[in-house]
């Protein structure tokens, strides 16, 4: 059986080799149950380190122009990179 693991890394800028500032992991194998607040140090120093560890990049945040009058408004983390691993399980 194949199962998917999804890793979200939030980086300091749009380059994949910039440092990780936020992260999330969902494990479709059921072997681990990750949740908010469970880890204070990132799993990788940069997004590139995740690639080297076998994670496949499946999506990256687009770079969008800043709407006039809203140039200084901040909301969500800006540089989101989603990765996956497809894992063989015994189930």
């Amino acid at each position: 059986m194949l199962r998917q693991k999804v890793l979200a890394l939030y980086l300091a800028n749009s380059a994949l080799d910039s440092v990780v500032v936020g992260w999330s992991l969902w494990d479709g194998t059921g072997e681990t149950r990750r949740m908010a607040g469970d880890e204070d140090a990132p799993p990788y120093p940069t997004g590139l380190h995740a690639l080297r560890d076998g994670w496949r990049l499946i999506q990256a945040s687009p770079l969008l122009p800043h709407a006039r009058g809203e140039e200084f408004d901040l909301a969500y983390l800006k540089y989101e990179f989603l990765f996956e691993q497809i894992v063989e399980t015994g189930a």
């Binding site: 936020g22 908010a36 969500y76």
Partner: peptide, 13 residues
Amino acid sequence: AIARYQNIRGQQH
């Protein structure tokens, strides 16, 4: 909407 972020550098408990 920010629930997707599990952990963020500098968070405090």
